[in-house]
Structure formats: structure tokens, C-alpha cells
Design a binder for these strands. Structure first.
Lengths: 185, 185
DNA sequence: GATGAAAGCAGTGCCTC
DNA sequence: GAGGCACTGCTTTCATC
């Protein structure tokens, strides 16, 4: 697996990503029409994007309410220790939380941020006690609840574009200089 | 108002949702095999789930790093006023933020939580000043950055199941194993 | 990137349980 | 009402240029 980007994505690749972001089940024929390519050319590009990992997969987007998941909680978790072993043990445990949708190690005044979907307040109470507060090394949990989703999209279409050239000519700091320190997010 | 829950989803429907959550481009033939149905029956159920809105759509899942989006920020925004007009004006403006992936009105000690993808620190600085701090009624912005994604999945498979029977009733069908791996981390 | 043939798939109507 | 089967027309795939 080559971590470095072998060939940069061109404008058509980004168009394909935009279309597949909007409809992941788009047929190759429809995809080709939208990016002004033949279906085979579109399919080939799509496959290359999948193989190089730019497209990691496809998923269905659900109505959480219809699935009975009426509440979404944003949970910030502070550990009692930030030693590597504590972080590792916490992370190993948290990926096994059945209710956890998202968890990341963050900078700032907390250690981890999680997104948790639950059915009800009772459900959250149960999960809080059985899944969250039993995670190792947890010192403090703060929860806030999503009252209303204002906007939600996998990636803003505006970001699915080739990196713009930096103003000022030779600057070139856009996009490729930040591999140190931040893992791929 | 008896149209809110037309027909409850059965166990096969939830199996279909699980499979499409893992691979949104699954063909009807493959879907049928996985849920032990013919392709036509699987396709019919999938279509019904789409039409009733349980499946809102399908989307591709990207490697943000390969797209040049090396940073993800969690931004909490507190407004100077929580009057309805202020909330409305803020929300109208925030959905136009090109870099915004997610925004919700939340309970707790802030008003809105956003997820923002950017290319670099320079990019974030630019977006902070041009997109975030110019939003109407903003009193305070706090950002934290995702250092590492520990886990990320659209919906935990464990939640894509029929609601468990209420305790005390008589339900004995709760022997569910939680061995689902994380689809993508 | 395009073309054409072959394989595979989706969509429909009809039948069974 | 729901599942399965067979047929028909597309779509995808893989040669090849």
C-alpha cells in the first residue's frame, strides 16, 4: 500500500466523487452522462478511485427516527491519564461500544469526542451507565443532545474539488504539506 | 394521526438495512443472497424502504486525506441571543458555509455544534475568519481538532435491529451477539 | 477514451404458499 | 400479503483498437 498519492486526482475525478457523494448507487451509464464520459470510461475511473482508496466504500443513509433512534448525543470524554497505555486501553474498549457511531481523539479541553445514537432518554441512561461510564480511565463525561439537525452532508460539494492554487504564486502550501502530526482524518 | 408508523420494519428489513449500511452498492442479487431472499423479493423490500424514507439515499465514503482535507474541526458556537429570530438567521447562514459538513442545535453549554473539514491550518484560519466568525449573532467560537479518528461508522450495526421488547414484558429474544466489526475506521 | 460481444443484473407479470 | 420463477431489456465488464 503506497501511502503517497501516486497520481493526483484530476477535475473529472472530482466530478465523479461529487456525483457519487450525492448518489452512491449511480449506474456507470448515468455517471458517465453526468461527467460527460462514456460509461466504460466512467466505470474505469470509478474503479481506480476505489482501488486507490479515495473512495473507501458506499453506504446507505438512514432516517434515524424511522429506525427508532430518536436521540443523538455528542459525548465528550476526559481521561484520568493521557499516558499512551491509557489512551490505547480506552480506544480498544470504545470501538466495542455498540451504540457508538463516531469517536475521535481531539485537541482542546477534552480528550475524546463521541457521537452516540440512542432510542430514548431511558436508553441513554442505560447506555451511559453500561457502556460509557465503564470505559477504562474515564475521568469525566459531558453529554449534549442534538435538538435539531440543521445540516448534514457527508462532504460539502465545495470541498470535492481540486485544491485551488494558492494566491501569491509560489506559495504552494495548499493541500500537501500537512502530513506531519495529523493522521488521516 | 395513525400514519406515523405505517408498518413496522421486520427482522428482514433490518437485515437489509445492515447489509446496505455496509455496502450501499450491493446488487439486488447479492442482497437477496445475504438475507436469504430471492433477488426480486429483496429488491421489492429495498424499494419499499426507500419509498417510505427509512433509506434516505446512498453515498460514497471518502478518504478525506486523499482529497486533500487533512483536518477536521469540531466547532462549538454560542450565540449572543437565543431568540428565535437569531437562531433562524444563524441557521440560514450556516447552511451556506461551504466547508460545513454537519451542524446541529444542541443542548448544554453551547448552542450549535459543527463539523468542518479543511485542508490545512492556513485553510482553517481563512475559513474561521471568512465563514465562521462572520455568521450572524455569534458570540463565541470554540474549536477542537480531530487528531485521530478512533472509529467511524454511519450507524452501529447493533442499532440496526428491531427495538428490543420492553423489559418485564416477556421478551427472551435478546441474545444478540455484538461481533460486528467496524465497517470503516 | 471508444467500441462491440458476452455475462450479469434489474424490472415486470404471473404463479404458489 | 409475501416470496419465488421466468422472461425481457439494460447494464456492466472485458476484450480490442
Amino acid at each position: 500500500m503506497h501511502e503517497s498519492v501516486a497520481t493526483p486526482l484530476d477535475a473529472i475525478d472530482y466530478r465523479i466523487l461529487q456525483e457519487l457523494s450525492g448518489d452512491g448507487r449511480l449506474s456507470d451509464v448515468a455517471l458517465g452522462e453526468r461527467v460527460h464520459l462514456s460509461s466504460t470510461a466512467a466505470a474505469r475511473r470509478r474503479k481506480i478511485l476505489e482501488e486507490r482508496g479515495a473512495i473507501r466504500g458506499y453506504t446507505a443513509d438512514f432516517d434515524f427516527g424511522q429506525l427508532g433512534l430518536h436521540m443523538m448525543a455528542l459525548v465528550s470524554i476526559e481521561l484520568a491519564s493521557q499516558a499512551e497505555q491509557a489512551l490505547n486501553e480506552f480506544e480498544t474498549a470504545v470501538v466495542r461500544c455498540p451504540s457508538m457511531s463516531f469517536c475521535s481523539f481531539v485537541s482542546g479541553d477534552t480528550d475524546f469526542m463521541m457521537i452516540v445514537h440512542v432510542r430514548s432518554f431511558e436508553d441513554y441512561d442505560r447506555i451511559y451507565r453500561s457502556e460509557l461510564s465503564t470505559l477504562p480511565h474515564v475521568a469525566r463525561i459531558r453529554s449534549s443532545f442534538v435538538m435539531r439537525r440543521v445540516a448534514s452532508r457527508p462532504v460539502p460539494p465545495a470541498l470535492l474539488q481540486p485544491p485551488a492554487p494558492q494566491p501569491g504564486g509560489g506559495g504552494g502550501s495548499g493541500g500537501r504539506s500537512l502530513h506531519h502530526g495529523l493522521a488521516r482524518v
